[in-house]
Simulated assay, not measured.
Amino acid sequence: MLVFPNAKINIGLNIVEKRADGFHNIESCFYPVGWSDALEITLAESFSFHTDGIAIPGSTKDNLCTKAYEMLASDYDLLPVRIHLLKTVPIGAGLGGGSADAAFTIKALNQLFDLGISIEEQEQYARRIGSDCAFFIRNRPMYCFEKGDKFDTIDIQISGKWIVLVNPGIHISTVEAYSGVVAKRSAEDLRTILSGPITEWKDRVHNDFEATLFKKFPLLETIKDKLYDLGAQYAAMSGSGSTMFGIFEHEQNLKPDFPHFRLWQGFLK
């Protein structure tokens, strides 16, 4: 079975408060984009996990795909499989690539073994792996809150617009990103703003990580400014970075403008 775990962007990211468990409550719109890995799962005599493409740090037993398999295998006595992941979505980039891989592993195993696990149950399994992992089960634009693992519908009209994602190769850990953040509630409701025209987002839809990370990594702000200079209707950092994105009214080819960075561009669905 071959599936293609896609990335997501954050459109707005408000860090609301620190929780008693050490995590943070957030408010954000998670929006799927087409930058994808390739994940193949086949039956095998013994379990194995292999990767190609971008090198993934850590041991294979700690990979989220392995954890997803072991979790389901424990509950459903699954036969062994061989998992092969071609990694193309940058790591530590604010795109949720690892979470997507794990969520798509859950969905693929459910289909491969005909387990009959409901969408809600798949989301519960995904929440045990990571805060944003559950989003990729339904994999559609959602308003996300609490740890980023609770969802509600959102009225956002950007389907058909062109998006450009620029990754400068700066790895930012979650701990590093949160270290300089002061949690606070936003003065405006994010869902209300995003239901309006994109031309009104620039000064109203913010990613709270930008204030401190732009000081530490000035290149990120430079990329954001350049996306606006090139005609983006809205530009921001995704998640805790370092990927920057610009949303455009019409198709662009910005590869010549960012020759030294990883770049993905395509239409939003």
Score class of each variant (00 low, 15 high):
Tyr143Cys: 00
Ser159Asp: 12
Arg128Val: 02
Val164Ile: 08
Gln252Glu: 10
Lys107Ser: 11
Gly231Asn: 05
Ala68Phe: 12
Asp189Phe: 01
Ser173Gln: 06
Lys224Gly: 04
Ser173Ile: 06
Phe151Ile: 00
Thr105Trp: 01
Gly58Ala: 13
Phe245Cys: 14
Glu251Cys: 01
Asp225Thr: 10
Leu85Ile: 15
Ser46Ala: 15
Thr60Met: 13
Arg204Asn: 15
Leu86Trp: 13
Ser131Arg: 02
Arg82Gln: 15
Gly169Gln: 13
Ser173Tyr: 11
Leu220Asn: 09
Lys226Arg: 12
Asn139Phe: 10
Phe248Tyr: 06
Phe135Ser: 11
Ile9Arg: 07
Trp201Arg: 12
Ser238Pro: 04
Pro218His: 09
Glu176Gly: 05
Asp21Ile: 11
Cys133Pro: 04
Glu17Ile: 00
Phe261His: 12
Gly98Arg: 02
Ile198Glu: 13
Ala102Asn: 03
Val3Ala: 13
Cys144Gln: 06
Leu227Gln: 04
Gly148Met: 07
Gly169Asp: 11
Ile137Pro: 14
Pro80Arg: 13
Ala211Trp: 10
Pro218Tyr: 12
Thr105Cys: 11
Ser240Lys: 12
Ser195Leu: 00
Leu85His: 08
Pro168Cys: 05
Ala93Lys: 11
Thr192Met: 04
Tyr234Met: 07
Leu72Met: 14
Gly98Met: 09
Lys269Arg: 02
Gly180Ile: 03
Leu13Lys: 08
Thr199Arg: 06
Val175Phe: 00
Ile163Glu: 09
Ala102Trp: 06
Lys226Ser: 10
Leu39Tyr: 05
Phe245Ile: 02
Asp37Ile: 14
Ala73Ile: 00
Met244Asn: 09
Ile15Glu: 03
Glu123Phe: 00
Thr199Gln: 14
Ile163Asn: 10
Ser118His: 04
Leu194Asp: 03
Glu40Asn: 10
Asp208Ala: 08
Ala183Gly: 02
Ser240Trp: 01
Leu39Ser: 07
Tyr31Arg: 06
Asp225Leu: 10
Gly148Arg: 11
Ile26Asp: 10
Lys87Gln: 09
